[in-house]
């Protein structure tokens, strides 16, 4: 037995060995990619729905507006695709919440959780504007990197392949802008 394995065996219980090998070290990208595909396929098989994120965020915004008196549930946009619904009856609300809590569970498991603050005003504005553009862009293209790209290409949809080169171009220009702003 190699020295490394021997030493691992010496000072750790089996439980600790499993934890240190499977949990403490990050998983390789390819492993994550395969798991992601399997979970997605299971989700499609069981529910018949594709994975999406951003439609839901538009519905949340519209729902809040509706509550403060804007007639947002009657916007023409809802006639084009999908549906308008109460946020807690929206499947994407639950998958989005699940992603947040799943990541929280994962990072707590490795004991790396720490609240991280905001550096300065510049960062705050950059991220707010960035988020806004992401939201606006994904509404126009009817899909973010998940619904418009990952789920689209997966389901043999041409719209996903059209989305890809322009998303890459956008990310490229976005990074150019960041470098201009930070230098």
């Amino acid at each position: 037995m190699s020295g490394r394995l021997q030493s691992l065996k010496d000072d750790k219980t089996f439980y600790q060995l499993v934890i240190s090998q499977a949990i403490d070290r990050p998983w390789p990208y390819w492993f994550g990619g395969i798991l992601l595909a399997l979970f997605n396929l299971l989700y499609v098989i069981i529910t018949g729905h594709y994975w999406g994120i951003s439609n839901n965020l538009a519905r949340w915004g519209a729902w809040v507006l509706e509550k403060v008196g804007v007639n947002s549930s009657q916007w023409i946009v809802w006639t084009y695709y999908d549906y308008y619904t109460e946020p807690w009856l929206d499947k994407q609300t639950w998958s989005n919440l699940g992603i947040i809590i799943g990541a929280l569970i994962a990072i707590l498991l490795t004991q790396n959780f720490k609240l991280k603050g905001i550096k300065d005003k510049k960062q705050f504005i950059m991220v707010l504007v960035g988020g806004w553009l992401m939201g606006y862009g994904s509404r126009i293209a009817i899909g973010c990197n998940i619904g418009g790209l990952y789920s689209s290409i997966s389901s043999l949809a041409l719209n996903g392949w059209i989305y890809l080169p322009f998303a890459i171009t956008g990310v490229y220009f976005g990074n150019k802008i960041i470098m201009k702003l930070l230098l």
């Binding site: 988020g131 553009l133 862009g137 293209a141 009817i142 989305y163 890809l164 171009t169 490229y172 990074n175």
Partner: peptide
């Protein structure tokens, strides 16, 4: 709308 939206989305993703 797809190329335009994807472009805007990409810029936003990089910024945020």
């Amino acid at each position: 709308h797809i190329p335009i939206g994807a472009l805007i989305f990409g810029i936003g993703a990089a910024l945020s």
